[in-house]
């Protein structure tokens, strides 16, 4: 017979029987998953308009929070960039001799968190002030130089966060001979506070819209369950487990998620392309290096995976609510 050629010799078959039964089961299980996945995808293609509408709804609901998150991370990049200009100004005691001032400068420079220390001697400072302020004559009336020696401290990259700079300020303040330390962190903290608020608002929005996506998919899958009622009944009658009956609908949810994720990614890319010109011009006016970052490959993958998970979750909610109601109790009439 034709089938004989495919069979292995008898001895070999006997030895491998137990393993091959396990292997067969695993293969047929995977094969079933493949078949169900393909079948539920084909069902979505079979009604392209309805599927596209669901994908569009999901895409819009996902694109909005993701776009805001991208904007947020771009803003955080900006504030990180501005932090790099953070510089600490330490005013030394007025009567501190220049040699002691040099010692303080060396001490600060020896700290690991400090990149450079620049000592501005009081005479030099007065000259600069005289040149820049235009109070030349008024300053002549002063009997002595009112300006102290000043140290300009630039922190290392690692210490440029708001907290790092604050720690450095505390350290410098405690040094002998240091009168006063100034650092303009206020605006940085305000910007950080604002981005924090924005971040929370965006996450809240993302949660709400994620919930909306779950509900939309749940409702769509509920309709799919209703339209396949007979099939579910028969599957349950012939001994289909709950997992077996649920599987096609869970795949349907995941495919809705896949489509929704792709639509969301497209919407984001189109918006980025559309906005990039004006944003570049605006950033140029502020001499800022601000650019709107796209999601990148990783981000796009994460977006699509999250979308598929949301779709799966929505389907699961619907399946949990409606599939258990379908019991073949009234099928045997009479």
């Amino acid at each position: 017979m034709a089938t004989d050629s495919r069979q292995k010799p008898d001895g070999q078959r006997g030895a491998n029987r137990a393993r091959s039964v396990m292997g067969d089961q695993a293969r047929s299980y995977l094969g079933h998953h493949r078949k169900v996945a393909r079948d539920s995808m084909q069902r979505l293609w079979a009604s392209p308009v309805a599927s596209a509408m669901t994908w569009a709804v999901m895409g819009v609901a996902l694109a909005l929070p993701v776009a805001l998150l991208l904007l947020l991370s771009s803003l955080q990049g900006v504030s990180a960039g501005w932090e790099s200009t953070a510089r600490i100004t330490a005013y030394l005691d007025l009567d501190l001799p220049l040699s002691d001032a040099r010692n303080v400068a060396r001490e600060i420079g020896a700290d690991g968190r400090v990149m450079t220390v620049q000592l501005v001697e009081r005479d030099q400072a007065l000259e600069e002030f005289r040149a820049s302020s235009g109070l030349n004559e008024a300053l002549d009336f002063l009997e002595e130089n009112p300006l102290p020696h000043t140290l300009l401290v630039t922190p290392e990259d690692g210490a440029r966060s708001a907290d790092g700079v604050q720690a450095l300020v505390t350290f410098v303040e405690k040094l002998r001979g240091v009168d006063q330390v100034q650092v303009d962190l206020g605006w940085l903290q305000r910007l950080n506070a604002m981005t924090d608020i924005l971040a929370r608002a965006v996450w809240a929005l993302a949660l709400l819209l994620g919930g909306a996506v779950i509900l939309v998919i749940g409702n769509t899958v509920r309709l799919a369950i209703e339209s396949r009622r007979d099939e579910i009944l028969v599957a349950k009658l012939v001994g289909g487990t709950d997992a077996f009956v649920r599987r096609p609908f869970l795949y349907t949810g995941a495919w809705f998620g896949l489509g929704g994720g792709i639509v969301a990614w497209l919407l984001i890319q189109i918006s980025l392309w559309w906005l990039s010109g004006p944003i570049e011009r605006l950033a140029g006016l502020y001499r800022s290096e601000f650019t709107l970052q796209g999601p990148g490959v990783d981000g796009a993958l994460a977006l699509i995976i999250v979308a598929m998970l949301l779709g799966w979750l929505g389907a699961w909610v619907a399946v949990k609510r409606h599939l258990d109601d379908i019991e073949p109790g009234d099928i045997a009439g009479g």
Binding site: R27, S28, Y29, D230, V234, V238, T241, A332, G333
Partner: peptide
């Protein structure tokens, strides 16, 4: 089980209808 109204599914072939009990058991193709 055999029903008076057969409970056959009209969205698939005769073969696929008969195959359903095997499909839920995970039989190989």
């Amino acid at each position: 089980v055999v029903f008076q109204n057969h409970q056959l599914l009209f969205d698939r072939t005769v073969f696929d209808n008969v195959a359903m009990p095997l499909e839920v058991m995970g039989a190989s193709p």
